[in-house]
Design a binder for these strands. Structure first.
Lengths: 229, 229
DNA sequence: AATGGTATTCTTGTATACAAAAAGTTTGAC
DNA sequence: GTCAAACTTTTTGTATACAAGAATACCATT
């Protein structure tokens, strides 16, 4: 499907970074990675460019490519934007969602609940992802949906952290139900507010996330020093 | 400041595309551009990657790089997202804006009015840009501000179109005043709503924009055909 | 031992070379 | 005259070569 090596490499690196295989500030060695993927430096550098564009790595001129996990304050900022994007998606979706997509949302909420009750946290994670992507689609604004997916992916490592927090799953399920109902009844304000709160990092969740963040291996290495002149 | 040729090329191409020098669907010839910029294909291809990441060009595998001006429906979608982003910026800014930034907003509103009354449309355009960037900054969320700036830039060619519409400047000025007042008084809902309406494409503005779009040279060429298989 | 300067090694950025795919052209059959 | 198949040209994607900047090691001096 994708005949370009650069795209394969990007995808592989993206997965490695997003799953936390690399710590923050770690340098991506062109030569070693080229050998590892059996390609030359050229497609590798193209992959670096793409990763830099989506914010996963930072390209320091004449220094190299460094994995860039957001620091805690930046992560909070990103969640704030994510919450607002989802809120907008929800508001629009309540007015625009098609019966087909609404049916898919319904099915996904049920699948989520099933996974939760079965204690299948991987399944829950997957269905939860699906739920949110459907909300983006339901907004009826393809550009908005694409932007939301982009940020969603970028927050993936942190969302995994958050999932570990006890009791989160049950509350999350209830919120999914609420959102579904709001979409079914065309209740824009409720869909908007519920989705915002669903995603927002506030109250006790803030502390949970902070604790997880500190424990995570995402910030093991110091970021490279940006030289002046 | 930027010793990388690839970055220079990207910036140059970005300006050329954004100012409408290339029509939609136009192919960017690696070899000719390389000669024109006196660089090899390598930095040029890096520039293409970056432009593709920000959505200004589309990279068709084995086909080349094509300038990608959004079609009308996509442009409307983008404006919808822009309106929501600015609305969020406004809501947050009303609560978080620092006295320093607020003072800058005030100065910019005045400069905007001065330019408008002097009939200096270039100056008005510049100050208007400044105004919106300040709103992004005032949100206190650097990530949000960066995202807003990114989309703002992407919409630049269309904003220029919009400016031609008669009477738009006077209404715009009044809205700036309203927004400033909302920030000064910490009135989040008003800041949010006014900014959304300020940016949103609706009512008569929709028709104005559509007319401008049809007249523009942005869609002169047909987009490249995406081959299957 | 610590510091500063210099030489060496590594790494990045760019140019070029080459292979493979797409586009374009010519030729031939009907 | 039209269509299609084979051939040619062009263009992209990747590998490699080379130049210049950054990092490192080494040595001299204090």
């Amino acid at each position: 499907m994708t005949p370009r090596m650069a795209d394969n490499v990007r995808e592989a690196l993206e997965q490695m970074i997003v799953t936390g295989e690399y710590a923050d500030g770690e340098r991506l060695d062109e030569i070693r990675l080229a050998e590892r993927f059996h390609v030359s430096r050229t497609p590798l550098r193209e992959a670096f460019q793409m990763l830099a564009a989506s914010g996963l790595v930072e390209l320091l001129p004449r220094r190299g490519a460094f994995v860039r996990h957001p620091a805690f304050p930046e992560m909070i900022e990103m969640f704030e934007v994510m919450a607002e994007l989802e809120a907008v998606c929800g508001r629009l979706a309540a007015r625009r969602v098609t019966p087909e997509v609404l049916e898919q949302v319904r099915a996904t909420v049920i699948a989520c609940e099933a996974a939760a009750h079965a204690g299948d946290s991987d399944g829950y994670y997957r269905e939860n992802e699906h739920f949110h992507h459907l909300i983006y689609t339901a907004s009826g604004n393809d550009f908005l949906a694409a932007e939301a997916r982009r940020l969603h992916k970028r927050l993936q490592p942190f969302r995994r952290m958050q999932l570990r927090v006890r009791g989160r799953m049950i509350q999350s399920l209830a919120e999914h139900r609420q959102i579904l109902t709001a979409l079914e009844t065309g209740d824009s304000p409720t869909a908007e507010a519920t989705l915002r709160d669903h995603v927002a990092v506030q109250g006790a969740r803030f502390n949970d996330l902070m604790a997880s963040y500190k424990q995570s291996n995402l910030r093991a290495n110091p970021p490279p020093v940006a030289l002046r002149g």
